[in-house]
Design a protein around this nucleic acid. Structure first.
Length: 459
RNA sequence: UCCUCAAUAGCUCAUCUGGUAGAGCAUCUGACUGUUAAUCAGAAGGUAGCUGGUUCGAAUCCAGCUUGAGGAGCCA
């Protein structure tokens, strides 16, 4: 008599053939109750439920207790049943309902057997892991995170844990969270970081230093922005994947980014079939049918669109001459025009060679045009998911830009000194992983693809 | 942070120009041995987000606040 997860039992024919007519144990909670004789049990391992048939009269007292959401253990024989859509069901010998649940609480929460909007689920954020839709998203997220590490491991990259607390040194982009060891009652004590502690906005600069010793590196962790932005694609805390590679030019980093995205989407297609199927049903019922499978396949099987910043500006100006000027950043209005009017194929778009003015100091400049050796990769619906560039190798040029930007030279001197190791050209990029999950799942709001989203007013 | 819209039963919504609220689902009671968010019958459930104002009378009109959604800016 052994305990099995529902995911394992339903994973394929060979496994359930092995288990048929054997006594097994499952533990989970009641997901649905139908026709006075069927209980669906879920244990969180799968979107699928295991159906338990309670025909026997000895379960009359158990039946009275049955309520969606309550914890349960079933010992029984697994049998083949053609009429059931999962083909197997459990005939119980023994059923145990665990005590301690509060029916009033469960029945008035988002766990009731009913459709709730995603924004409603967010109001009971600690309960939403029990729902079909959210558990599905989080399972996909978990697999994606694993595959990210696997991709870099397979390609012989070294995983670097860049610090979450640092001095504000990266790019000067966006507002930064300050941290202190003092609370408001201890004003006279000394702060452990001399009031310099910040939450990182990017691990890039530290990652570059590790690259000088390790060649091919990546970091993957949470980063923080204190901007008061309330949109469907921004969070105060989000997960960024960053990579830096020695002796890589811009074209190499483009190829790496394409290879990574295609690899990840392929793995999701293979490993998350049930989840993608469920999501398609969900979208069909509540929004618009998105056909996630074909959307992912299309990206895997096609070339990404590549276009320079200067040329995309020309195309945008053809649509509407006043909508943008050369030198301005591409905003969400422009992204919509790019995807809806200019390139209608809903493929990723790689835009390269952005103007100096709108890119940070560490990006390598092209010899002419006032442009940088940089890329952005846009996905339809979620916008920019990758930003990257070739990095500046000249000590003098970096120093000049740092001074021009009025950055604190003291704080970033260590970064400048790395250039004294010689003109080792290198490139890197950052990927907003939460946005990639938005794209994969077709979920509109980034707050619904993160287990515990942190954003203005919500901590 | 700015602009627009919204907030009515546990949930999703209706209540048209001001006359103190309705439905489906969930819940409860009962029925049901092949259902896939089962079905059928009945019951119960509301100080209309909060605070104030206009009015004989406010869910409805006005102001402020809170929360949410969509859009903008910033970005990943």
């Amino acid at each position: 008599m052994k305990k099995y997860s529902i995911k394992y039992i339903l994973s394929n024919k060979n496994i359930y053939k092995k288990l048929i007519n054997k006594i097994i144990i499952i533990q989970g909670w009641i997901k649905y109750y139908r026709n006075n004789i069927f209980i669906d049990i879920n244990d969180g391992t799968s979107i699928k439920n295991l159906q338990v048939l309670i025909k026997d009269k000895k379960f009359l007292s158990i039946k009275k207790k049955i309520n969606i959401g309550i914890p349960i253990k079933v010992i029984g024989i697994l049998v083949y049943q053609k009429k059931n859509k999962n083909k197997i069901e459990l005939i119980p010998n023994k059923i145990k309902i665990y005590k301690g649940y509060d029916l009033n609480y469960i029945n008035n929460s988002i766990l009731q057997n009913k459709y709730h909007k995603l924004s409603k689920l967010r109001e009971e954020i600690y309960l939403r892991f029990r729902t079909n839709i959210f558990s599905t998203i989080i399972r996909i997220r978990s697999i994606l995170f694993f595959e990210i590490h696997k991709f870099f491991y397979k390609n012989k990259y070294i995983y670097i844990n860049t610090p979450i607390i640092n001095k504000n040194n990266a790019e000067g982009a966006g507002e930064v969270f300050n941290i202190t060891s003092l609370d408001s009652n201890n004003k006279n004590l000394k702060d452990l970081f001399n009031n310099e502690g910040k939450l990182t906005v990017s691990g890039q600069l530290e990652l570059e230093s590790s690259m000088y010793g390790l060649g091919k590196v990546y970091t993957f962790g949470p980063v923080f922005r204190a901007e008061n932005s309330n949109t469907y694609k921004h969070l105060s805390e989000f997960w960024m994947l960053e990579s830096e590679i020695m002796y890589y030019k811009l074209k190499d980093i483009i190829n790496l980014a394409i290879k990574l995205i295609k690899y990840l989407l392929k793995k999701i297609l293979i490993k998350c079939k049930d989840e993608l199927f469920y999501l398609d049903q969900y979208h069909k019922k509540h929004n618009k049918f998105k056909d996630l499978n074909n959307r992912l396949k299309k990206i895997i099987n096609n070339k990404f669109i590549k276009i320079s910043y200067t040329n995309i500006i020309k195309l945008l100006k053809k649509e509407d001459n006043d909508i943008i000027k050369w030198g301005e950043d591409i905003g969400s209005i422009h992204e919509k025009i790019i995807f809806n009017n200019i390139f209608k194929k809903s493929l990723p778009i790689i835009i390269y060679n952005f103007p100096n003015k709108i890119k940070p100091f560490y990006m390598k400049r092209n010899k002419y045009n006032n442009t940088t050796k940089s890329i952005d990769i846009l996905l339809p619906g979620v916008g920019e998911i990758i930003g990257g560039s070739e990095r500046e190798t000249s000590y003098k040029k970096l120093l000049k830009r740092i001074k021009k930007n009025k950055m604190n030279v003291k704080n970033i001197n260590w970064y400048l000194n790395l250039r004294k190791l010689g003109k080792i050209y290198h490139s890197g990029f950052g990927l907003g992983v939460d946005r990639l999950i938005q794209f994969i799942t077709g979920i509109n709001n980034i707050r619904d693809v993160v287990p515990f989203p942190i954003y203005p007013g919500h901590i």
